[in-house]
């Protein structure tokens, strides 16, 4: 099988602190891969390294076989690597309609078009409409994003990542902080992601991880600890020890 995303010997240090040590991770094409680990294991650092927010001290990152280690964040996005953020990173003054229209037009390579108005193109308008509908955002599409309820913002966060038509999608704790009532919408949205998109899910919520993933990697202290199918990981005594240890600390 071919690889969608691969890291080779990735290292990231902050001053004297090593956040990622010699991480070699393989995400297969069309995979539903989850990256889990106790608090402070360095999961978000990994996502930031993959997407180009941070630069690694050593190691390489390959997206579908091509080296993207030195590329800026926006180039990686254009090559099909998309992400959501653990804490919503949205455009507060834009409406969901504008937000999605923006992502669609960028994806279509129209970002520098300054003479045409938005969405005059029928296929683009279709895409925008379908995305808003799929993520239950149609009825709030003309409200300022900042005024939306948290659950809707969370949906927009995912819709925005999907609008970029990714080949590999990184989900950083998509259900974090979502109130119980709106949780189902998020879970449904995650479950109905297109099959041809490879997904790397970073999550704390074990129910979500085990219902979603077909492969799980456990990160401890910035290094790969255990990797395997959900049942293997669930049975692994070392994983239990790590999580129990964390529970005992807390």
């Amino acid at each position: 099988m071919t690889l969608a995303l691969e890291t080779q010997g990735l290292v990231k240090t902050f001053g004297g602190l090593t956040a990622t040590r010699d991480l070699s991770l393989k995400v297969e094409r069309d995979a539903r891969h989850a990256l889990i680990g106790p608090n402070g294991a360095g999961k978000t650092t990994v996502i930031n390294l993959l997407t180009g927010v941070l630069r690694p001290n050593a190691g390489r990152i390959l997206l579908e076989g091509s080296d993207i280690t030195a590329l800026p964040a926006y180039r990686r996005a254009l090559m099909g690597l998309s992400r959501t953020f653990q804490i919503n990173q949205l455009f507060a003054d834009l409406t969901p309609l504008e937000t999605i229209a923006l992502a669609v037009s960028e994806q279509r390579g129209e970002g520098m078009h300054w003479w045409s108005s938005l969405g005059r193109d029928a296929t683009a308008a279709d895409e925008i409409g379908l995305l808003l509908q799929r993520f239950h955002l149609t009825e709030v599409m003309n409200a300022r994003t900042a005024t939306l309820p948290y659950g809707k913002q969370r949906l927009l966060e995912i819709a925005l990542a999907i609008a970029a038509k990714p080949r590999v999608l990184l989900l950083d704790e998509p259900a974090a902080g979502v109130p119980e009532a709106e949780r189902q919408d998020i879970l449904a949205a995650v479950a109905s992601l297109p099959r041809d998109v490879s997904v790397l899910l970073i999550e704390h919520d074990m129910d979500l991880v085990f219902s979603f993933a077909d492969r799980i990697s456990v990160l401890v202290n910035g290094a790969l600890f255990v990797e395997g199918s959900p049942s293997e990981v669930a049975r692994d005594p070392r994983v239990k020890a790590v999580y129990l240890g964390e529970a005992a600390d807390a």
Partner: peptide, 21 residues
Amino acid sequence: SPFGLSLRAIRNNPLRAAAIG
């Protein structure tokens, strides 16, 4: 235009703007 919208997005959140390409 799409260009103008992208500027507003950058003003709001340059990090996310880069993340969508």
